[in-house]
C-alpha cells in the first residue's frame, strides 16, 4: 500500500471526485466556522477603534474579505474554465460553473459593504471611480457567465462559451487591483501588501482571519455546488444511479 504511487489524475473524473468532495466538505465548513468566530471576535469585540474613522472602520472586516474573494474566485474560475476549454476536462468546467454564483455573491457583498462604508466616510454611497467601476464590471462578468451558461442547452457548448467570457474578463482583475495606484481614485490605496501593512496588528489579524473564513466558506460551498452539477450532468451514468441507490 505504501509503495503505490498516488495517481492524482484518478480524481479528475467526476465519479471519483464526487465522494472525495463529499468527505472534504464538512472539514471546510468547520474551518470556516472556526476562522469566522475568531475573526469576528477579534474584529468586532477586541480590536480598538480607528483614529480616523472611529468605529465605522470595522466594516473592513467584512468588505475586504468579500472583495478579495470576489477577485480570487474569478481567477480560479477562469483557470478551471480555461483548463476545461483547452483539455476538455469535464470536471474542470463543472468546477468553473460551481464557482460563479459564489463569486457573484462576494462581488455584490463587496459593493454593498463598500457603499455602506463610503456613505459615512466619503460622503457618498457610490462614485464612478476606477476601483468601484471595475468591481461592478466584475459582478456583471459573473452574471454574464451564469446567464450565458444557462442560455445554452448543450453542456459542452455552454462550457466553451463561458470559458471564453471568463478568460476575456481576466484582464479586469489586475485593473481592479492596480486601479488605486494607476489612476487618481477616491478609494484609498492598499493597506496590505507583501512588503508592509499600514494597519495595527490586532486589526490586521482580524481582517486576515475573516478572509480565511470566507475562503473556507467558498471552498465548502463550491464543492457542494460542484457535486450537484455532477449529479445533474452525469445523471445518465451508472455511478450516479448507484449513488442514488438504484
Amino acid at each position: 500500500m505504501s509503495h503505490r504511487p498516488f495517481h492524482w489524475y484518478r480524481y479528475a473524473s467526476p465519479q471519483a471526485f464526487y465522494p472525495l468532495a463529499g468527505r472534504m466538505i464538512p472539514w471546510f465548513w468547520a474551518l470556516a466556522a472556526i476562522f469566522g468566530v475568531a475573526g469576528l471576535s477579534v474584529g468586532f469585540l477586541i480590536a480598538p477603534g480607528d483614529a480616523q474613522q472611529g468605529e465605522g472602520y470595522r466594516i473592513i472586516f467584512l468588505h475586504v474579505p468579500a472583495s478579495w474573494m470576489s477577485m480570487f474566485l474569478y481567477l480560479v474560475m477562469a483557470f478551471w474554465a480555461g483548463l476545461g476549454l483547452a483539455f476538455r476536462f469535464r470536471l474542470s468546467s463543472m468546477m468553473a460553473s460551481a464557482l460563479a454564483p459564489t463569486g457573484a455573491m462576494f462581488a455584490f457583498l463587496s459593493l454593498w459593504t463598500g457603499a455602506l462604508w463610503g456613505k459615512p466616510m466619503w460622503g457618498a454611497w457610490w462614485v464612478w471611480d476606477a476601483r468601484l467601476t471595475s468591481e461592478l464590471i466584475l459582478l456583471f462578468l459573473y452574471l454574464g457567465f451564469i446567464a450565458l451558461q444557462a442560455a445554452i442547452d448543450d453542456p459542452r457548448r455552454a462550457d466553451q462559451a463561458g470559458a471564453i467570457l471568463a478568460l476575456v474578463g481576466v484582464v479586469n482583475i489586475p485593473i481592479i487591483y492596480f486601479s488605486v495606484k494607476w489612476w487618481n481614485t477616491l478609494h484609498q490605496g492598499s493597506s496590505l501588501n507583501l512588503a508592509r501593512s499600514s494597519m495595527a496588528t490586532t486589526m490586521l489579524y482580524g481582517m486576515l482571519l475573516c478572509a480565511l473564513a470566507c475562503w473556507m466558506y467558498a471552498i465548502a460551498i463550491s464543492l457542494m455546488r460542484a457535486r450537484r452539477i455532477m449529479l445533474e450532468r452525469e445523471k445518465d451514468t451508472l455511478w450516479v444511479r448507484k449513488e442514488l441507490g438504484f
Binding site: 466616510m121 477616491l186 484609498q188 490605496g189
Partner: peptide
C-alpha cells in the same frame, strides 16, 4: 459636492496620537 478622502492607515487613537 465635497467628499472626504481618507488614507489607507488604520491605527488606534492612542497610537496615532
Amino acid at each position: 459636492q465635497v467628499l472626504a478622502k481618507h488614507d489607507e492607515n488604520y491605527t488606534p487613537p492612542e497610537v496615532a496620537q
